[in-house]
């Protein structure tokens, strides 16, 4: 919005324009300047990103009425209300366990997949389609597939266990195993995707370095620790940050597979925020949780962006 004002205030051709400032007049672009082009997209980002960020932060300190309207300044009361909810503390603990397990397993499995599949996609097409089919399908569809697989009584998983004599097991029926299912689904869905990045990183190691390693250190252990790992470190840091971001954002699989149950064992913070805001209409705690999530998600997302600005392949 402010950019519109600026463009009206500066009607002259912009300084430092194209390499050869054109002498001809009536060239619409240079007369209006870059600001005219930027005005609408910049205004949309201000309206739908910048202002909501400020509002999310400010609103978390306001007193909110039954319909979510501001009724005064509340200081930290929303945060106090949030942290006094037992379900929030449970959700926070669940999310920490879920995120830690998901990220570690996801990066390890992605690493193994990347080693196995080779960087040039040399594997056969049926193998690639099967490994990367979870990558191209929505999380909701992946969760549905797992639900069908794990469904009590009719699910193939239970039948297979029944065939070897284990009856009545229901992975989604116990808090611990249900959270484990969510972790496994996360790894199944995202590890192949992250393997793509690690494969790109492995491929970017120069041929000369690989050959030198092969002659200098045939067993590869020392080379891996001292050469390959440091070269891949920026990419691994990026993948880890992205996995952490995705795991904190998780809601789709909770919605389909467990609805936070059993016994709140799979209530994750994003799902809890959804319930606070759109089921319980508990605006105060929702505003506080929003601000906390905004800070953590944006930090994670910003960190991954900084990692990329270093291009992750700086040795090239």
């Amino acid at each position: 919005m402010s950019t519109t004002v600026v463009s009206e205030a500066e009607p002259e051709p912009q300084p430092g324009g194209p390499a050869q400032p054109a002498p001809r007049r009536r060239r619409p672009f240079t007369v209006l300047g870059p600001y005219a082009v930027l005005a609408l997209p910049a205004a949309l980002v201000v309206g739908f990103v910048a202002i909501p960020i400020v509002q999310t932060a400010v609103r978390s300190f306001d007193l909110l009425g039954v319909r979510g309207q501001v009724t005064g300044f509340g200081g930290l009361s929303n945060y106090r209300a949030l942290f006094s909810q037992p379900l929030f503390l449970i959700s926070l603990k669940n999310t920490l366990v879920y995120a830690a397990a998901s990220v570690v397993l996801c990066v390890v499995v992605a690493w193994l997949l990347a080693q196995l599949l080779s960087a040039r996609f040399g594997a056969s097409r049926p193998l690639l389609v099967s490994v990367f089919s979870p990558t191209v399908m929505p999380m909701i569809a992946a969760a549905n597939i797992w639900l069908y697989f794990l469904a009590p009584r009719i699910g193939l998983f239970g039948q297979l266990l029944g065939a070897i004599g284990v009856h009545g097991s229901n992975l989604l029926g116990e808090p611990g195993s249900a959270l484990g299912v969510l972790v496994a689904l996360f790894v199944w869905k995202f590890a192949p995707y992250f393997a793509l990045f690690i494969m790109a990183g492995l491929q970017a190691i120069p041929q000369s370095v690989r050959e030198a390693l092969r002659t200098e250190d045939p067993t590869g252990r020392y080379a891996f620790r001292r050469v390959v790992l440091p070269m891949l470190a920026p990419m691994l840091a990026f993948v880890t940050t992205m996995a952490l971001l995705y795991s904190v954002e998780t809601i789709d699989s909770v919605y389909v597979l467990t609805q936070g149950g059993p016994n709140n064992g799979t209530s994750l913070v994003m799902y809890y925020l959804y319930q606070l805001g759109f089921n319980y209409f508990s605006w105060g705690p929702a505003a506080a949780l929003s601000a906390l999530l905004m800070a953590s998600l944006s930090t994670l997302s910003g960190l991954s962006l900084i990692g990329l600005e270093r291009r992750a392949f700086h040795w090239q």
């Binding site: 950019t3 600026v6 912009q14 300084p15 430092g16 324009g17 194209p18 300047g33 870059p34 600001y35 930027l38 997209p41 910049a42 980002v45 201000v46 739908f48 990103v49 910048a50 202002i51 909501p52 960020i53 509002q55 999310t56 609103r59 971001l245 954002e249 994003m270 925020l273 805001g277 929702a286 505003a287 929003s290 999530l293 905004m294 998600l297 944006s298 997302s301 910003g302 962006l305």
Partner: peptide
């Protein structure tokens, strides 16, 4: 291709769009 006053600020604005996911400001967007 162009240089103009406030360019880095405006570039930062579009970076902000990447850094802050819609999920992070869900209730305000709603």
């Amino acid at each position: 291709r162009y240089d103009f006053p406030g360019k880095s600020l405006i570039t930062g604005l579009f970076l902000l769009q990447i850094v802050v996911p819609v999920y992070a400001i869900l209730i305000q967007e709603y």
